[in-house]
């Protein structure tokens, strides 16, 4: 599979993914704290959560850092940047691009698609309440693709 992005965009892609991870951590800090405090106090989180998130915060005596809108903003930007980052990283040319890499890329993309379908199907089967959204499935596909491409490039076809 031929690609047209220059090699240097790989670094931009890595930077985007790193920023996305940081934004995701910031956006989820309140959930992490709720989980941490809940576990520490041995709280039945699900029981309290069914009564609303505000009740949980009162119950845990916790003041959230961010409102729901702020959290969503961080998470949306995180998702957007991670997808852009993965796409830039994976579809940028190699230092010396040739037909071998084009073939590896196409092969890994197909394998990743298969793994994503299997994984998503498994999740729907085991935990139907999770309801993976389209963008998260796309992100999952790109993560699988990254792993398979990395494996092919640095392990399977590595030269000593």
């Amino acid at each position: 599979m031929k690609t047209y992005f220059p090699y240097q965009l790989k670094y931009v892609g890595i930077l985007f993914v790193l920023v996305a991870v940081v934004l995701s951590c910031i956006g989820n800090v309140d959930d992490f704290m709720r989980g941490y405090l809940g576990a520490r106090e041995d709280t039945e989180l699900n029981t309290v959560l069914n009564e609303g998130a505000e009740n949980l915060d009162e119950h845990l005596n916790y003041t959230p850092y961010f409102s729901q809108e702020e959290k969503d903003l961080y998470l949306h930007w995180s998702l957007f940047l991670s997808i852009c980052g993965f796409v830039l990283y994976l579809f940028s040319k190699e230092k010396r691009e040739d037909e071998f890499y084009q073939q590896i890329r196409a092969k890994c993309l197909t394998q990743a698609l298969l793994f994503t379908w299997l994984f998503t199907g498994f999740i729907y089967w085991v935990k139907p309440e999770y309801e993976l959204e389209g963008f998260y499935i796309l992100q999952l596909h790109l993560i699988f693709y990254t792993i398979l491409y990395y494996r092919s490039k640095y392990i399977k076809y590595a030269v000593v």
């Binding site: 190699e94 010396r96 040739d98 037909e99 071998f100 890499y101 076809y157 590595a158 030269v159």
Partner: peptide
Amino acid sequence: QAGLAEQLGVSRQTINAIEKGKFVPSTVL
């Protein structure tokens, strides 16, 4: 392998994969 790769304008990995029979090159290559 590196020298041949340089001459043919491909990567060393490509030459290595062809030599080991893991990759069949195009007609052009």
